[in-house]
Amino acid sequence: MPLSLHPDLGSQLINLCSMLLLLTTFAIVAQRRLSACVDLFALQSLFLAVTAAVVAWFTDSPHIYIAALLTIAIKTVTIPMILKKVIERVNVKREIEFVINIPPSLLICGALVILAFSVTEPIAKLGFLLTRDSLAIALAIVLIGFFMMIARKKAVTQIVGFLMMENGLFLGATASAYGMPLIVELGVFFDVLVAALIIGVYTHRLQDTFDSVDTTKLTGLKE
C-alpha cells in the first residue's frame, strides 16, 4: 500500500537516509584505520540499500527492491569481504597515510558539499517532489569519493574512494530518477563487482612487486 503513508513522510525519510549516507562519507574521510574504513563503507552501503527500499516503497516500483537487495549482497557483504582479505594479505598494519591530513580534508569535503548543492540547485526542481535534495547529496558523495582517491596514499583507500563514488552514483540514479531500468542496474552492479575484483588483484601484485601498497612509491614513470 504505497500511498497509505503521507508523502511528506516519504520525502522526510529519504532525506534522513541521504543525510546518513553523507554522514558516513564524512566518517570515512575522518577515519585513521584501514579496516574501520572498510566497515564504514559497508555501513554506508547498508544505508544506501535502505534509501533504495524507501524509494521503492513510496513509489511502488518493485524493481528497486531488487537493486536494494543486490546492494546489500554486493556492497555490504561481498566487496568488504574482499577488501578485508586484501588488507590481511598485504599485511597493512599501519594506519592510513595522508596526502592531506584529516582536519583540512574535512574542510575541503564541506566545501564540496556546498559546491554540489549550488551546482544542482537550478536543476533540482525538475526532479520528483519526493527526492528533491538527493541529487545534490549524490553529487557531493561522488565528489568526496573523488577527493578521497586523490588525498589518500594507500591503494586500498583509493578503492574505497572509487566505491564511494559508485555509491553516490547509485543514490543519484535511485533517488532522483527512481532507478534506471533493471537490466541497466544489473549491468552496473556486475561491472562494479568486477572492477573491485580487478583493483584487488592489482593491489596484490603491487604488494608482491613493490613490497608496499603506498601508491606514492609509484614514481618510476615520468618525463
Binding site: 561522488v142 569519493g145 591503494a155 572509487f162 552514483l169 532522483s176 592489482y202 601484485r205 603491487l206 614513470l221
Partner: peptide, 28 residues
Amino acid sequence: LEAGWKYIVLNFVGIALALFGTVLVYYT
C-alpha cells in the same frame, strides 16, 4: 604495474563521472 595502476585509477574515476552524466540524461 605502475602504468596499469595509473590507468585503473584515472579511467575508473572517469567512467564513474560518465555514469553520473548518463544518470543526468535519464533524469531529464
